[in-house]
């Protein structure tokens, strides 16, 4: 009997504790880029998405991604890499966008951002979470990007201007001579027919 009662008691306690755990809020953080090609000296857009999954508001949310984009390799154009929000309400999605410019080409590892927050205003315990990471990226040189994607209309026009005399001029000379002798022949035939 005592064993049954104690089992029920333990079960009740565990339910109560698990419920309190469920009531806590967690932040899910994603980090992604909009760019299909990342090019040296061209804009690179990074989007952070924060989602409060729990039933309560989280406080003093602090995102830090300075370590992913060191100042010697990236120039910050728009936004901040260390944004702060006073609170994020339950079930709310939040987006933060940063625009940077890579200074160097080559491989670069873009790692996770670190987010700290408090689960309640009273609770001063700082929670820490990490965003998803982009990983190794290849920063293309602007020269390579130009080579692959620029239209080069003026270059093609100039090339046509240079190449066409080499084709048109001999063709014109050949065509003139051909025309001259073929005309001579047809004229002669016509005269003979008339006679």
């Amino acid at each position: 009997m005592f064993f049954k009662i104690s089992l029920t008691f333990i079960a009740l306690i565990s339910i109560v504790f698990s419920q309190t755990d469920d009531e806590e809020s967690f932040l899910f953080v994603t980090k992604q880029t909009f760019n299909r090609f990342i090019v040296e000296n061209k804009e690179l857009t990074i989007k952070y998405g924060l989602y409060n999954s729990g039933p309560t508001t989280v406080f003093n949310v602090n995102l830090n991604d300075m370590h992913s984009f060191p100042a010697d390799k990236f120039e910050l154009l728009v936004g901040t890499l260390n944004p702060k929000w006073e609170r994020i309400h339950a079930g709310v999605n939040l987006t933060h966008v940063v625009v940077l410019k890579p200074k160097q080409s080559g491989l670069s590892n873009i790692t996770y951002a670190i987010v700290t927050y408090q689960k309640s205003e009273k609770n001063t315990d700082v929670q820490r979470t990490y965003s998803s990471e982009i990983g190794d990226i290849y920063i293309m040189t602007s020269r390579e990007y130009d080579r692959r994607f620029s239209s080069h209309i003026i270059d093609w026009i100039l090339f046509t201007a240079m190449a066409s005399p080499c084709i048109i001029f001999p063709f014109f000379l050949w065509f003139n001579s051909k025309n001259k002798y073929e005309l001579l022949l047809t004229k002669d035939k016509l005269i003979r027919k008339v006679q």
């Binding site: 190449a163 080499c166 063709f171 001579s177 051909k178």
Partner: peptide
């Protein structure tokens, strides 16, 4: 003379165009 001239000009024209 005519054949030489026409063959030369046509050969230059055709090969240039084909090569490019």
């Amino acid at each position: 003379e005519v054949a030489d001239f026409e063959a030369t000009t046509y050969s230059i024209f055709y090969n240039n165009a084909f090569y490019l």
